[in-house]
Design a protein around this nucleic acid. Sequence first.
DNA 1: ACATGATTGGAGTGTCAACTCCAGAAAATG
DNA 2: CATTTTCTGGAGTTGACACTCCAATCATGT
Lengths: 206, 206
Amino acid sequence: MTADELATPRLTRKGRATRDRIVAAASELMFLRGVAGTSTDDVQHAAGVSTSQIYHYFRDKTALVRAVIAYQTQQVLDAQQPLLGRLDTMEALRAWRDLLVDLQRERQCEGGCPIGSMASELSETCPETRPDLIEGFGRWETGIRDGLRAMRDRGDLRGDADPDELALATLAALQGGLLLTQVRRETAPLEAALDAVLGHIASFTT
Amino acid sequence: MTADELATPRLTRKGRATRDRIVAAASELMFLRGVAGTSTDDVQHAAGVSTSQIYHYFRDKTALVRAVIAYQTQQVLDAQQPLLGRLDTMEALRAWRDLLVDLQRERQCEGGCPIGSMASELSETCPETRPDLIEGFGRWETGIRDGLRAMRDRGDLRGDADPDELALATLAALQGGLLLTQVRRETAPLEAALDAVLGHIASFTT
DNA sequence: ACATGATTGGAGTGTCAACTCCAGAAAATG
DNA sequence: CATTTTCTGGAGTTGACACTCCAATCATGT
């Protein structure tokens, strides 16, 4: 029960397609230019729809933004699969690290993290989106945490390792690394951040 | 030679005071509501000046934003003194960690990092501010790095510890921790992030 | 086929934002 | 004191933005 279905109870196949096009176009624009930097007009043209359609499928811009957050969360998690689903060995963690670094390099270190950027922009200015952002981060954190828990349950991590805390620290390092990488346009910060936290996790291996 | 003097070569004492009031007011508003969420009108009222004064002291909104970045950088660094100037023992690092956590708690985890928030909002939408943001982060990073270098030079850190990389990782962990703390309105992410990176640094101690 | 409701196009509205202009007050300069 | 420059107030301009409205068109179920 995302915010989607509640807003528009009945959608024909065509309607859903149009709605999806709007969300996809809005997501790309908001990723590139920020939420405030993206007007509904921009979204219209990019999606090839008319003014009224956006307001037919979304109550207001905030509703659209919430749909964009859900969409980007899915995109981000999908881009990390299948690794994110099995982060239960140091090798998997290192491969995941490399994937994240490569992804940033591919896009010339531009844009940062889609979720992180929106979180920063919206946390204070648009409180109603905070639950969506928390959920997005939460799903990400869960992926990391489950792997670490498996490692500890299996005995690969010592008992004094706290998977929950380590997962949170890992997500934080990732976010901070992405932010600095975005500003400086080089992957060094992301690499340093992830290497440090992975090194820390490795120090708990048996 | 900051951007300040270049823009307005001659300032009387009164002029400088007015300019400072504008920057201080803009900084607070932009911290609370973001750059895009702060209009020049808002700044006017908060600073108690008239429309033309803002454009007398700043060529445009971007110039004002650049001044705000410089101001916030100074504020952030000052708030961490004198600790930031002497981060050359694990005790100092831990005290610094506690200070950062306390600062967040004091402001109810709202707002995140003044520099980090602006970096995220402006990196893509306003490229001309990126050098200012890089410099702000750079000064912060330097404070951390110098302490770690001193530790290694003194022999408190092993030779295989890379102070530059560790400093970068520390700043990244801090930024990511602040972002998650801002979204979730609790200090746990910041604590986890800093504890992890400090633990990692501690693993290099002799 | 027909009725119902979803879907679409596009003109229109009110608000608010950044920025300009100009003229007068205050301050520095010589 | 005279003059030059900085400083200030506020009205005005231009454009963009979120959002509304209404009429027309299509899809769907019976």
